[in-house]
């Protein structure tokens, strides 16, 4: 117990929270953007996974982690558009289409992994690159703070930046205003000549791109390889974080940190004598709890709108 407490109250633990929060945070922001536009993106998980794989594969072939990242994000964004196509053009239920995309991503990445790496589990035979760590000049030398946020993966910094960017986009730009109007009352947007479908396509593409950033962090920042189903539910945790954060980027950030904390905690506890399977449950139990809170709140709002 003492070991655990010491670990938890060390600056490196704070740093690890930020590190494990990164993919969840990206995906949460993606969930916020899509949800505010009225298109629930349940395929975040699959989009992350596809981006994680694409990033590794492309970086191995091109020798550049950044090109890998761009391609991963592009593919995830394209998946967002594909989801939009199914839902908006072919009028499938967006939840079912999202589930289908998730299943396709889970198995499809394994198939492609076998083709490029001749392995059904891990991409370690590929010489993939990683996104570098950045150091913040002055902050890194401040005692405790430096150890916490002075040196992190580039994508971790970008994820923090993304919170602000997404906030500004949603609440300070004309497109953001339209996006929120479309999500709240598509007829209202339509009646003033806004193309609802166009806005929702854009929202899904942005949502996919953000999820793609998160996925790329997993395989090119957090670790340096792709392994099957490596997202292990983070896309769904992001949906919970989005709900818990009341569909707001900053709220989503705080909720992501909460799940990041749970994740980091479970990582540390695995080094103790607690059965690993039990510890690994923690993030998911928290997700379940958060969703229960959320649905309770939803029922309340629905009643008040009646």
């Amino acid at each position: 117990m003492k070991v655990l407490l010491e670990a938890v109250f060390s600056p490196t633990f704070a740093a690890s929270i930020l590190r494990v929060t990164t993919p969840i945070l990206f995906a949460t922001l993606g969930a916020v953007v899509a949800d505010l536009a009225g298109v629930v993106n349940i395929a975040l998980e699959g989009m992350m996974l596809v981006s994680a794989f694409t990033g590794v594969a492309v970086s191995a072939f091109t020798g550049s982690a950044w090109i890998g990242l761009i391609c991963g994000v592009a593919v995830a964004s394209a998946l967002g558009l594909l989801l939009g196509y199914f839902h908006l053009k072919l009028r499938t239920n967006i939840i079912l289409a999202g589930i289908a995309l998730n299943l396709l991503a889970t198995e499809g990445t394994v198939f492609l992994l076998y083709i490029v790496a001749h392995d059904k589990g891990v991409s370690s035979s590929l010489a993939s690159k990683v996104i570098p760590d950045w150091q913040i000049p002055i902050i890194k030398d401040i005692p405790v703070l430096g150890a916490m946020v002075g040196k992190q993966n580039a994508l971790t910094y970008l994820s923090l930046l993304a919170v602000g960017v997404v906030y500004l986009f949603l609440y300070k730009t004309p497109l953001g205003l339209r996006l929120r109007a479309v999500g709240e009352n598509p007829d209202a947007a339509d009646s003033v000549g806004i193309s609802v479908h166009k806005v929702q396509f854009i929202a899904l593409a942005i949502s996919g791109a953000l999820a793609g950033m998160g996925g790329a962090h997993l395989s090119m920042g957090y670790v340096s390889w792709f392994s099957r189903n490596m997202t292990s539910g983070r896309g769904f945790i992001a949906l919970a974080a989005e709900a818990l954060g009341r569909r707001h980027p900053v709220g989503g950030f705080i909720a992501s940190l909460f799940f990041g904390l749970a994740d980091a905690l479970s990582n540390y506890m695995q080094s103790l004598r607690v059965p690993g399977e039990f510890v690994q449950m923690i993030p998911y139990l928290l997700t379940l709890f958060a969703l229960a809170v959320y649905s309770g709140r939803q029922m309340k709002t629905r009643r008040s709108f009646k």
Binding site: R178, R180, E184, V192
Partner: peptide, 19 residues
């Protein structure tokens, strides 16, 4: 049935689409 977005302000609803 009013074509308005409830959480947006009066001004935002008025200019929506021609911001």
């Amino acid at each position: 049935h009013f074509m308005l977005a409830p959480s947006l302000t009066v001004a935002e609803n008025i200019v929506l689409g021609a911001e």
